[in-house]
Structures are given as structure tokens and as C-alpha cells.
Write a protein that binds this DNA or RNA. Structure first.
Lengths: 178, 178
DNA sequence: AGCACCATGTAAGTGGTTACATGATTCC
DNA sequence: GGAATCATGTAACCACTTACATGGTGCT
């Protein structure tokens, strides 16, 4: 009974191919733009995986159009690919391997001076503030379905409390004597 | 100008050694118990890193006590190790490489049936509810400083909104016709 | 002409997990 | 006696990042 523990990247790629045929470059862009606030991938993963998906029959290459100026290589998910993807969707998500570096630094904050910690909190606050804006943008422009909207709402909620928490923590630290 | 991009595990280990001398086993336990909600490590990382820290002069072995029943191998951070750790604390945290699998599954939820998505939401809700309890426990029992308390508060805030969001999303989905 | 971005890929290196191996101690 | 937990480590494997290589297109 081995674990298998497949690469999550595979499913992120399959997910975007399930939406519509895409090139590797477009997949990367979609990941950055649409799920960037909770997911990231590199080309070094995407391109080899695309090849592997074709080998396994989970996706297939679409021959480039002649009148297509760019030399894009499109990929289309197969029925087998859809099955595989849907099987994965049913599996429980492994909550694990969460690593939040800014929390780690703050947790050990007593080892640094106050200004260092305040800087971390400020940059954390700023990144969450711009995230709020980005998500608002996304919510307006995109024709998202129920599930996408729910995920966006999650991002909006958590980033809002993050900003609030950062403000409170900054205030509390600032008042501190040391 | 190379990136260096050192292993974050090294600093998690150094951080707990900066608190007090510990064995590899105790470090793992401290990580699980105290920062488990935003960090995780495996023995396969910790023990080799402990050895590497000694090689680099960032930590040193403490010879086991004779009257110490268990054969624990303790490690103590050196001044050099403290310097290295404090330098790292000053560096900006790289917000990146965040990967939330449950959000990924929900984002692609339209490819699965409603019950699958509800299951993910329910288990997400439950894990956040037990997190709230765990954090309450931690906050009471431990003699934590300002920074630890702040991090705990962050965990409490985000897990509360997560539960709230999960409830709302579950309700909205349940009402949906399909 | 030059810059930003589009576009695809490979190679090297590393960070990290999982599985395996071994044995002591404590509690029921 | 047996299970849970304490305790330390190694080996194999793989997921992922970074750096490199190459060239096209569009804009100013």
C-alpha cells in the first residue's frame, strides 16, 4: 500500500485545461492571474507536465493554426484526463505542508528589534491590501461561477481580517515601551 | 548576484534552539505543537540539518547526561548561530509558494458534483473549528510573549472567518437547485 | 534601436517527504 | 505482553525552483 502522493501541479494544469484548451504559457498566466493568491507554478514544472499528460493520454496536442501568428502550442484535455481530474477532486484535500514564512518570522520576533517586526507587519498589511483590490478587480471583470466566487470571497475575507489584525498588532507594538 | 534562497527549515530549527537547547525530537514536537497551524517539518529534514548546523558552527552538541535515562542528543545554538538567525529575521519574508489544496479543489468545483464540494467545505470547517480550540488551549497554557500571542491571534482570527465563510458557502450551495 | 512581453523548453540543483531500520521506555 | 510513544537516524525518491538558452512580436 504505497501512498502515490501525486504532484498537485498536474491537477492545477488539468483543471485549467478542463476549462478550455490552453498553451503552457496561458496556463501559467491563468494560474498567476486567477489563483495566484493561493497557488503558484513555474514553467519548469508546467512544460514537462504537459508532455507527461500527453504521454499518459490525459491531454492531447492541438496542431497550431496556420493563420495563428504566434507559435503557440495548445493542449486539450481528453476524456481520460477529465476522469482522472474528477477522481482527484473527490479525494480529501491534504491540509498540510502549509508554510507561512512571515508568521514564522513574527513568531520568533522576540529575537529581533521592534522595528524589524513592524516592517514585516507593514509589508504584510500592504500585500493584503493590494490583494483586496486585485480580488475586487477579478470579481468584477470575470464571468466566474459559484465556486470561483466562493473562493474569491474567501480570499477577500481572510485578507480583510489580515489587514485588521496587522493594524491592531502594529498599534499594540508601537505603544510598547521598549 | 546569486539568490542563495536558503532552506527555511534551517531557520525554524535555529529559532527553537534560540529559545533553549533541544533535541531533534523535541524540535519536531515544538514545531508540531506550537507552530503546527502554519508550519511543518519532517525528521528527514531535521536530523540532517542539525548535523549541518554543527558543521557550520551554528549549533553545538551537548553531551548527554549520565543520569539522563533517555538517550537524547541535545543541541545548543552558538553565537554565530544567533547572528545568522537574526540576519534572517531582518530579511523580507517571501510571500510566495503558498499552495492551498482545498481552495484549488473548490475553485474547480464546477467539475464535480455538489456533494463533493460540500464535503470539502465541511471538512475544512471542522479542521478550522478544532484549530480554534487548539489555539485557545495554547493561549491559556503557554507562557507566550507578545509576538507569539500575536501569531496565535492571527490564527484565531483567520480560522474564525474560515468557519464563517464555510458556513455561508455551505448554505448558499445547499439552497442551489442543482 | 531597444524594451517589454510573448513563447517554449532544458539542465542542474535542492528542498522536502516517505519509507525503512532500530531500539528503549512507559503505561495499561 | 502489547501498544503507544520516545528517540535517532538513513536512503530513495520526487516535486519544484532557478538559471539558462533561444527566438518572435509589438510598441515607442
Amino acid at each position: 500500500m504505497t501512498k502515490k502522493r501525486n504532484s498537485r501541479t498536474v491537477y492545477a494544469v488539468l483543471g485549467f485545461l478542463a476549462d478550455k484548451p490552453r498553451s503552457g504559457y496561458e496556463i501559467k498566466k491563468a494560474i498567476d492571474d486567477k489563483i495566484g493568491f493561493f497557488w503558484s507554478e513555474s514553467y519548469g514544472q508546467i512544460y514537462p507536465i504537459l508532455k507527461k499528460l500527453v504521454d499518459k493520454g490525459l491531454a492531447e496536442k492541438i496542431p497550431a493554426n496556420a493563420d495563428d501568428g504566434r507559435k503557440k502550442q495548445f493542449y486539450k484535455i481528453t476524456d481520460l484526463g477529465k476522469d482522472e481530474f474528477q477522481e482527484w477532486l473527490k479525494l480529501p484535500a491534504d491540509y498540510n505542508s502549509i508554510r507561512n514564512e512571515i508568521l514564522l518570522k513574527l513568531f520568533f520576533g522576540a529575537n529581533a528589534d521592534k522595528e524589524t517586526n513592524l516592517n514585516h507587519l507593514r509589508s504584510f498589511k500592504e500585500s493584503n491590501q493590494s490583494l483586496i483590490n486585485d480580488l475586487k478587480q477579478l470579481d468584477n471583470q470575470e464571468n466566474t461561477g459559484t465556486y470561483q466566487q466562493a473562493v474569491l470571497a474567501y480570499g477577500a475575507n481572510t485578507s480583510k481580517v489580515s489587514v485588521k489584525w496587522a493594524n491592531e498588532t502594529i498599534n499594540r507594538l508601537t505603544k510598547l515601551s521598549s
